[in-house]
């Protein structure tokens, strides 16, 4: 080996942590293959040893939408802003599931891979971030069903469809922001894995998924839109089906809150990750 090669070798400094840790994005880039491989693993493993396999990706939201159609559409006779209730609630679930799955999987990601965390070095951020990949694939499959439903029900999207990816990205960001925080917290407090499902259940009914935001009494609407998901979910459905009227003020508020949540999640994860290997 020549001297030139030796001086090319990376130089790693290990120092005690001081203050706010740097994000070390370059480290994340070096390990990009791990990010992809872990996402690939999650997708491959999830439906192994199931009879229906990937059909569950489609079946779960379809069954959910059918239940909502029966309860809210038939029994409670709520408004679906003029589109068939099934397609209306399916669009809502499409967006909700992005948030729900990302948050649930990201939260458990660090604890589930505790052996990796205690035995190998890699940027810990990869664990929660890699869950986005498998959710994205689930979304793509469900989106195909959405297209099919729209063809069957003769619903035609307009130009707002171009805004759909933005809403999608914001939903991912919101879920990842919270997920980063909860995944780090779950290392010390496994309580979160029990607290999270009821919280998500509450959030589902506090958000315009099964019903339209227009069904909420006008007097309560300002409180209702304090939930940052409300405007995002409504906006997502609007971008596909043209239903509802996304309020610019509520939307702007949501975007600010989501960005803040993401930054807070990222910073607190970086602060807590030092102790992972010692505590987990």
């Amino acid at each position: 080996m020549t001297l030139a090669v030796i001086s090319d070798q990376p130089h790693v400094k290990i120092r005690p942590p001081k203050g706010w840790a740097a994000l070390s994005l370059s480290d994340l880039w070096t390990y990009r293959d791990l990010l992809l491989t872990l996402a690939e693993r999650d997708v491959k493993v999830r439906y192994k040893q199931t009879a229906l396999g990937v059909i569950w990706v489609v079946l779960q939201p379809l069954l959910g939408a059918a239940i909502f159609t029966f309860v809210f559409g038939r029994v409670a006779r709520m408004s679906s802003d003029g589109v068939p209730y099934l397609i209306f609630s399916f669009a809502g679930l499409l967006a909700w599931n992005v948030f729900n799955s990302t948050l649930t999987r990201a939260s458990a990601s660090v604890v589930e891979n505790s052996r990796m965390v205690s035995k190998i070095y890699f940027p810990r951020l990869i664990l929660p971030l890699s869950t986005i990949g498998s959710v994205l694939i689930d979304f793509a499959v469900s989106a195909c069903v959405m297209v099919l439903l729209m063809v069957v029900y003769h619903v035609h999207p307009g130009w707002p469809l171009l805004l759909m990816p933005i809403f999608l990205a914001l939903l991912f960001m919101a879920a990842t922001g919270v997920g980063l925080y909860t995944s780090a917290l779950m290392v010390s407090y496994r309580d979160l894995q029990y607290a999270l499902p009821p919280f998500l259940q509450f959030l589902l009914y506090a958000s315009p998924v099964a019903y339209a935001a227009s069904s909420v009494p006008a007097s309560l609407r300002s409180i209702y839109y304090l939930n940052p998901l409300a405007a995002l979910l409504e906006g997502f459905r609007w971008s596909i089906l043209g239903t509802g009227h996304p309020q610019p003020a509520a939307l702007a508020y949501s975007i600010v809150v989501v960005l803040a949540m993401f930054v807070i999640g990222l910073v607190s994860f970086k602060r807590m990750e030092r102790r992972f290997a010692d505590v987990i």
């Binding site: 030796i6 990376p10 130089h11 790693v12 400094k13 290990i14 120092r15 005690p16 190998i120």
Partner: peptide
């Protein structure tokens, strides 16, 4: 040395890529 946990005090310099096989 494998960067799994961080030191309380002190410094380490590693020259080269590190592969660690703790398990």
């Amino acid at each position: 040395l494998s960067r799994i946990t961080e030191p309380t005090t002190g410094e380490i310099d590693l020259y080269g890529r590190i592969g660690s096989l703790l398990e």
